[in-house]
Nucleic acid binder design. Structure first.
Length: 493
RNA sequence: CGGGGUGUAGCGCAGUUGGUAGCGCACCUGGUUUGGGACCAGGUGGUCGCCCGUUCGAGUCGGGUCACCCCGACCA
């Protein structure tokens, strides 16, 4: 017990430190030997792959197809849309040369100054520009629309300060880009994809989210509207977990993507883009984990059930192996992923702690005692409750238990979040309380001045104008001016 | 870019007045263990970030330089 702190510091002590330690110790990822970059380890990547698979299926259900566009974007493309450049210019990595040569002392390489590119290439921070430059060639008629493409890729944003999964210089994501013949169709698509994200977050990640629309200052560079899902982490901070943008005709015009409509008249195409990234991994970790480590939702856990044998000698192990084989088979039959860990170089206690750290939803333990009684010990990760059960019908029981855990961790997260959403009318009170985290529903006069003042004085930002909240007019708590709606304000990652 | 800090074994750190390079974890070997992160014994592993200087002698003192981390402005 005294050693516990060596394995993971307590959540309450320093949430940031705890998070970082957990990511490393649960074998999800680590800091790379490259500025601001991350190595995603096999276990972490397995979770990301499961997320990808589910999301990809959902996209395809809505008619989206996958494609791939270049990593490098000519500098001139980026400057075509004025707001877009301004938003990203400060964090772009630039390729200026295409050759190295050995240095004078022949013990290293230097950039060959004669190999300078005429036009610099930008490592994509997002792909609107290069994709719309391509769409120009693909779209000529209203019959070519809607055009619905998605790409899974990496992007690079040279952030000043980085944190594993939450903000890294390079990150993995999907970016969907669609072109439409009408404004209405594009707006609908942007909202439709937000719903897909929200559904994924709640049903699969078991992370409750607030859906809404961003204020003008928080909008994506080049968008007319940015829709967002905001999740609450265990320290009460908000995490923007996915965004969907209605881009109007900004990119259509910037890249001259015109089509002839039914009346044979030229029109600019309407655009959306939408993305979620490996930041979702951060949301997953910061929503459910406890002092024993990760808690994974069964729907995304690479290992859903781990089985640990207890034995004193080879003979006993053989007996346990024989008893466990049919259980594994039955569980696999239900489509459940099982790991039977009979490695003999780790003691059972180590395995228990290790699989808890890694968030495996259900653990079965079977030893000589169980063999005599025809029982097995079942532990659920979300509550850490243990019980001894008959081997009879154990596979069905575990199957139901996984569903139960999925529901339970969502309910717990939702209860926690709902208990930390407050309506607030008084700015002094707000300033005091927002330090401790939580989501605040407050009236806002809609001005950027008020928004900026709140941010400067409290470090909290307007996360969104939430959907699905009954809105009544009121008074802005800062300016005292009239307000038509409450907005969601919180400190964020 | 502003403020603060750190560079010594794979990781975390100690190193006194300048005098043969240390500890814990991890790793390897052997044995005993195995129902909640095992124990004992032995062992492997280092251009002390880099350069220059002072000195008989530098991890330690001086100058320079590089890298990384933390706090602010930026952000999926």
């Amino acid at each position: 017990m005294a050693k516990e702190l060596d394995f993971l510091t307590k959540r309450s002590e320093d949430y940031s430190k705890w998070y970082n330690e957990l990511v490393v110790k649960a074998d999800l990822a680590e800091q790379a030997d490259v500025r601001g970059c991350m190595v995603i380890k096999p276990y972490g990547y397995a979770i990301w792959e499961k997320m990808q698979r589910v999301l990809d299926d959902k996209f395809k259900e809505t008619g989206v197809q996958n494609a791939y566009f270049p990593l490098l974007i000519p500098k001139s493309f980026l400057s075509r849309e004025a707001e877009h450049v301004e938003g990203f210019a400060k964090e772009c990595a630039v390729v200026t040369h295409y050759r190295l040569k050995t240095n004078e002392t022949h013990d290293g390489v230097v950039v060959d100054p004669t190999a300078r590119l005429d036009e610099e290439l930008i490592i994509r921070p997002t792909s609107e520009t290069i994709i719309w430059n391509t769409f120009k060639n693909w779209i000529h008629s209203y019959r070519d629309l809607p055009l619905l493409v998605n790409q899974w890729c990496n992007v690079m944003r040279w952030e000043m300060r980085t944190r594993l999964f939450l903000r890294t210089s390079e990150f993995l994501w999907q970016e969907g880009h669609t072109a439409h013949a009408t404004r209405e169709e594009a707006e609908n698509r942007a909202q439709q994809m937000l719903k897909v994200y929200a559904d994924f977050a709640e049903k699969y990640m078991a992370v409750p989210v607030v859906q809404g629309v961003k204020s003008e200052t928080e909008r994506f560079a080049g968008a007319l509207d940015t829709y967002t899902i905001e999740a609450m982490m265990q320290d009460g901070k908000a995490l923007q977990s996915g965004t969907s943008h209605f881009l109007g005709q900004n990119f259509g015009k910037a890249f001259e993507v015109q089509f002839l409509n039914k009346e044979n008249k030229p029109e600019y195409a309407w655009a959306t883009s939408w993305g979620v990234s490996t930041r979702l991994m951060g949301a997953l970790i910061m929503t459910h984990s406890d002092d024993n480590g990760l808690v994974l939702p069964p729907a995304l856990a690479p290992i859903q059930v781990v089985i640990v044998p207890i034995y004193k000698n080879q003979e006993q192990l053989d007996q346990v192996d024989a008893a466990i084989a049919p259980i594994v088979e039955q569980l696999n039959g239900f489509g459940i992923s099982v790991k039977y860990d009979n490695a003999d170089n780790k003691r059972p206690g180590f395995k228990f702690a290790d699989y808890e750290l890694k968030g495996v939803p259900v653990r079965l333990v079977l030893g000589a005692r169980d063999l005599e009684n025809g029982t097995v010990e079942v532990m659920r990760r979300d509550t850490l409750e243990k019980e001894s059960r008959s081997l009879e019908g154990i596979a069905e029981y575990v199957k139901n238990l996984l569903d139960d855990i999925q529901e339970n961790i969502f309910r717990k997260a939702k209860e926690y979040r709902d208990a930390h959403i407050y309506e607030c009318e008084n700015y002094e009170e707000f300033k005091e309380r927002v330090k401790d985290g939580g989501f605040f529903l407050c009236h806002w006069d809609g001005t950027a001045e008020t928004e900026a003042r709140i941010k400067e004085e409290t470090q909290a930002t307007i996360r969104c104008v939430p959907f699905g909240v009954e809105q009544t007019p009121g008074i802005d708590m800062v300016s005292g001016k009239p307000s038509v709606a409450r907005v969601l304000i919180a400190r964020s990652y």
